[in-house]
Structure formats: structure tokens, C-alpha cells
Computed example of a mutant assay.
Amino acid sequence: MTGGAPLRVLVVAKAPVAGRVKTRLGADVGDDVAAEVAAACLLDTLEAASAAVGAEHCHLSLAGDLTGAVRGEEILAATRGWRTTAQVGDGFDERLAHAHAAVAASGPGPVVQVGMDTPQVTAGLLLDAAAPLATHDAVLGPADDGGWWVLALRDPAAASVLAGVEMSTPTTYDDTRAALEGAGLSVGGTRVLRDVDTVDDAEAVLGEIAPGSRFAGAWRGLVAP
């Protein structure tokens, strides 16, 4: 990476509270089950981040309160040693920009940012996403629904261009890439991953995730007999 500064991982997430997370999934399996699945997804993601760079280089940008959230105490334990900040902004685009700005304010170094919708992410995938920063200013990993699952930046302050980009649309990947390139950043790519938003998504991801993952355990235990 640039200048020998450490790589950071930023996880942007919601506290897994029933009715507030994975509402599309909840419409099919119930809000309580969806919140359990969301908690498992988040815990798998936190584990991958810590394994990739160490807890001291991990950041969590959290919407909501873990008090009363599903597996809240476990999530707190998993983020011990992390820097946790509350999400700020009206829309998700603004919250993403502010989350990256908080990482930038903590010191120099590149960042890899993910959400909580890809429990199949591993430490290796996070490091692979950062690797093209050797020759690019940014790396954007597409999701198969038209969005993106990972954004790596040499300078997290560059995420200010995300403000104004509409998120959660079929063109979010293209729009985000255009915003980055419009700011003069060179953008590399990495592999496609599938977000877990629906039952079909969950079943597909189940086929590619480690059987011992929290997501696999939650899905098989709560949904798949």
C-alpha cells in the first residue's frame, strides 16, 4: 500500500433489530428470523475483517443501538478493539461518505469498506479487493443485483463523491463508478459477490459459504429444516 500506512477495514452496518434489518427477507421468513440472519451475517463479516487486518485497524460505522439487538453482546465482543462510530447523514450515500471521513480522520492509510449483506466474504477476499490499490486509486466490487459489495480507496476522504449517488438501485454500481471516475480517480475491479436480500439469495450464498459459518448455522437452523 501507499507510504507504508496500514490498511484499514470499514464495516458499515445496522444493528440487527427485528423489523429494521433485511426487511425484504423478513417479508418471507418473518422479521425475527430475518434479524437473526442479519446478526449472523454481521458476525461473519466482523470476523473476516479482524482476520484480514487485525482489530486495531478495523472500523464499524453503526446505525442503531446494539442494546436489545439480536446477538448484541456477541457483536460487542467481536468489535472489541475496533473504532465504532454512529452513522451520520440523511441518506445511505451521505452515511457512507461520513463513515469514510471518520476513517480518514483517524489517520493515513487505505481502506476497504464492506456492508453486512455478504457473509461469504473472507479475509482473503478483503485483501484481494485491496490489492489493485497498488496501481489504482479505488477498487469497486460489483454485486450481482447492480449494486456493489466492496469499495477500496487509497484515501478514504475520496468517498465524499458518494454523497449524491443513489444507493440500492439496479444502476448503483455504474453510478458509483462514474462518480469516482468523474472525480479523477482510476478505478480497478474485483470479483462479483451476491448480497443476501431474499430467500433465493440466501440459498445461493449457502452453497458457497463455509458450513461452519454463523450465517450457515442460522439459515439451516431457522429456515431450512
Results as ranks from 00 to 15, higher is better:
residue 211 P to S: 10
residue 114 V to M: 10
residue 161 V to E: 11
residue 108 P to D: 07
residue 116 M to V: 09
residue 78 A to I: 09
residue 65 D to H: 12
residue 16 P to R: 06
residue 165 V to Q: 01
residue 214 R to P: 00
residue 161 V to L: 11
residue 48 A to Q: 02
residue 138 A to Q: 03
residue 167 M to A: 05
residue 27 A to F: 03
residue 68 G to Q: 11
residue 153 L to T: 03
residue 61 S to R: 04
residue 164 G to A: 02
residue 192 V to Q: 14
residue 211 P to Y: 03
residue 160 S to E: 15
residue 104 A to Y: 13
residue 185 L to Q: 11
residue 143 A to I: 09
residue 225 P to C: 03
residue 30 G to C: 06
residue 81 G to E: 11
residue 20 R to I: 09
residue 118 T to G: 08
residue 132 P to V: 05
residue 35 A to M: 05
residue 80 R to S: 14
residue 92 F to A: 12
residue 96 L to T: 08
residue 64 G to A: 01
residue 48 A to I: 04
residue 144 D to W: 02
residue 44 D to S: 05
residue 38 A to T: 02
residue 207 G to C: 02
residue 14 K to M: 10
residue 147 G to D: 07
residue 185 L to H: 12
residue 153 L to E: 00
residue 139 V to F: 11
residue 25 L to H: 07
residue 165 V to R: 02
residue 98 H to P: 08
residue 62 L to Y: 10
residue 95 R to C: 13
residue 24 R to P: 05
residue 123 A to Y: 06
residue 177 R to F: 04
residue 13 A to R: 06
residue 88 V to I: 14
residue 215 F to S: 00
residue 41 C to Y: 04
residue 168 S to C: 11
residue 137 D to S: 13
residue 225 P to R: 07
residue 52 A to W: 01
residue 33 V to N: 04
residue 28 D to Q: 15
residue 113 Q to R: 12
residue 171 T to Y: 00
residue 141 G to H: 02
residue 171 T to V: 04
residue 174 D to S: 11
residue 116 M to K: 08
residue 49 A to Q: 08
residue 13 A to F: 09
residue 119 P to V: 09
residue 66 L to K: 12
residue 130 A to W: 10
residue 193 L to W: 08
residue 64 G to N: 07
residue 150 V to E: 05
residue 52 A to S: 07
residue 69 A to C: 13
residue 188 G to F: 12
residue 127 L to T: 07
residue 176 T to I: 08
residue 109 G to C: 00
residue 69 A to Y: 11
residue 204 A to R: 02
residue 98 H to A: 15
residue 109 G to D: 00
residue 88 V to L: 12
residue 174 D to E: 05
residue 192 V to I: 15
residue 11 V to P: 06
residue 41 C to D: 02
residue 98 H to V: 12
residue 37 V to Y: 01
residue 73 E to R: 15
residue 184 G to V: 01
residue 14 K to V: 08
residue 18 A to F: 09
residue 140 L to T: 11
residue 183 A to R: 13
residue 105 A to D: 15
residue 31 D to W: 00
residue 167 M to D: 03
residue 131 A to I: 00
residue 44 D to H: 01
residue 11 V to M: 02
residue 208 E to H: 09
residue 74 E to V: 08
residue 218 A to L: 04
residue 63 A to W: 14
residue 114 V to D: 00
residue 50 S to Q: 10
residue 36 E to M: 11
residue 178 A to Y: 10
residue 23 T to A: 12
residue 103 V to Q: 06
residue 103 V to L: 09
residue 87 Q to N: 12
residue 132 P to S: 05
residue 69 A to L: 14
residue 47 E to C: 11
residue 141 G to M: 05
residue 13 A to M: 08
residue 64 G to E: 03
residue 214 R to K: 14
residue 124 G to D: 01
residue 187 V to K: 06
residue 69 A to T: 13
residue 215 F to N: 01
residue 76 L to V: 13
residue 47 E to F: 09
residue 37 V to E: 03
residue 98 H to I: 01
residue 127 L to E: 05
residue 95 R to V: 07
residue 73 E to P: 09
residue 91 G to Y: 10
residue 180 L to W: 06
residue 201 D to P: 04
residue 78 A to N: 04
residue 54 G to S: 07
residue 24 R to W: 00
residue 20 R to E: 14
residue 156 P to T: 04
residue 188 G to S: 14
residue 160 S to H: 14
residue 27 A to R: 15
residue 192 V to F: 13
residue 177 R to L: 11
residue 90 D to S: 12
residue 86 A to E: 14
residue 215 F to D: 03
residue 89 G to W: 07
residue 2 T to K: 13
residue 106 S to V: 03
